[in-house]
Design a protein around this nucleic acid. Structure first.
Lengths: 257, 257
DNA sequence: CGCGGTATTGAATCAAGTCAAACTTCGTGG
DNA sequence: CCACGAAGTTTGACTTGATTCAATACCGCG
């Protein structure tokens, strides 16, 4: 395929080609529409990241913005005590490296959970790109807005929410994100370990495992290792909404509602 | 004093005057240095908010950026179930209304916990202001960066952290913010209720109350209603750092390490 | 085939939540 | 000025959800 073409680490200044490729990628739907529209794209260069390797690490000087083209990564804060805190699982369309804009060093580790690819915009080229593409800056604002929103959502999860609720939301969230990228929203496989999910949700890995089992026993999902299938999405949704942890809450499928 | 002058809701276009006033206010240290430097300030108009009233509410169209000049507010998400989730307690120098940049409606409620004042920049004037003051946009980026950072910090608190740890951090954080604004870092009074602290920290108001009492018994602080005095800051710090909740952890000051 | 990392499951413990009651502070109006 | 009521705070007893510790099972890989 054109994979090796894409991977080629050279800048391509021919807008027409880029537009075509963007269309193939379906990139016009991502968080950064203006990137896919070509003109600004001239400055973006693709970069592959193999599973397990880092895009950047906390403390490094931040030199560029990144947009995930495909794959799944993990951004985390290296805890003061050795333990890491998982902040997010960036996927296609997500922006990384916003620290660069603020001129601050990287605050987080970002590691690939599977072989992935990002588009790179060196921060030095950023202002130029902005002046060339009027929409870019606005996209950026919008991105920040949704990033803040996302984190707030996450805060909400961690704050006043039962463990089962958090996990249910997590699954539905993943499902939605996969759907948005053209994958099946019903069956997918997790790229991350139980421990990483636990850290993300503020739970222990044992709790996560137990909850998966429980959800399965209750017929909400089918799970084997990292393969997940959502069986009763309505029930999952009500599990995600209801604060109440009693089995009965989601044991009865949608009838009354 | 010049309070009534400041409160006057007219635009002032004379930079020199504004610079002088900014210097009086000490605003040069806030998150938005370029605002205080004058040129951009021409567009900012002060606005008073009385205790208990809202600066804006979730769902409203967002029309302006705000920077807190003095006072203490509360930003919260109105929970789907009637309960609110407290996100932050904005104080002097903090930026509000960033949703406006993204062109989205307000996502949060913002209410004054005490009589406060903010500087207002209508979003319509934003681009103009940016072109007039080169530093403004950068300040904005920096703000977003630190906002994200702040939320991450908060996430960390809510995630893998014991209740005592969270409260200790909260107190130290407040102390630091007061210090940064020229108030005493050792003694201050809380502008928010136990319930609001609890929501912010992901705890119940009873837990917060209990922890205050415990900290007091252990000689870390003195607390009466909303008056707080930090007695043993070093011990507080170690309580904030150590994951371990045993009383002994912070009963014995730093010795073995 | 056996080994290492990952996941599941169980039992015991504990931190925080829940429910409930008493008490303090403060504002309001008699 | 004092009585009253509302709101906020403290404290206690009890319950429970989630962690911890530990053992076992499983998958993938060399």
């Amino acid at each position: 395929m054109n994979v090796q073409t894409i991977a080629t680490p050279i800048r391509h200044d021919v807008s027409a080609l880029h537009v075509q490729r963007a269309a193939q990628d379906g990139c016009q739907q991502i968080a950064f529409p203006s990137i896919a529209l070509g003109d600004a794209g001239a400055q973006w260069t693709p970069r592959r990241i193999r599973r397990g390797t880092y895009l950047y690490r906390a403390g490094m000087p931040s030199t560029a913005l990144f947009v995930v083209r495909f794959g799944c990564l993990k951004s985390s804060l290296p805890g003061d005590d050795g333990e890491e805190l998982v902040l997010d699982f960036p996927m296609r369309g997500d922006l990384l490296g916003a620290d660069a804009l603020a001129g601050q060093p990287c605050a987080t580790d970002v590691q690939a959970l599977e072989d992935s690819e990002v588009l790179v915009l060196p921060i030095a080229d950023f202002e130029t790109a902005c002046s060339r593409v009027p929409g870019l800056r606005n996209d950026l604002y919008r991105h920040f807005g949704s990033a803040l929103r996302r984190e707030r959502e996450h805060l909400m999860r961690l704050g006043g929410m039962r463990a089962a609720q958090r996990l249910a939301r997590f699954l539905l969230d993943l499902s939605q994100r996969f759907a948005a990228n053209g994958y099946s929203p019903r069956a997918f496989n997790l790229r991350m370990s139980r421990a990483e999910i636990g850290s993300y949700l503020g739970l222990t890995l044992e709790s996560v495992s137990r909850l998966f089992s429980r959800f399965q026993d209750d017929g909400l999902i089918k799970v084997h290792l990292r393969e997940i299938e959502l069986i009763d999405i309505a029930a999952l949704r009500s599990a995600a909404a209801a604060g109440d942890g009693s089995a009965a809450a989601w044991a009865a499928p949608a009838e009354a509602a």
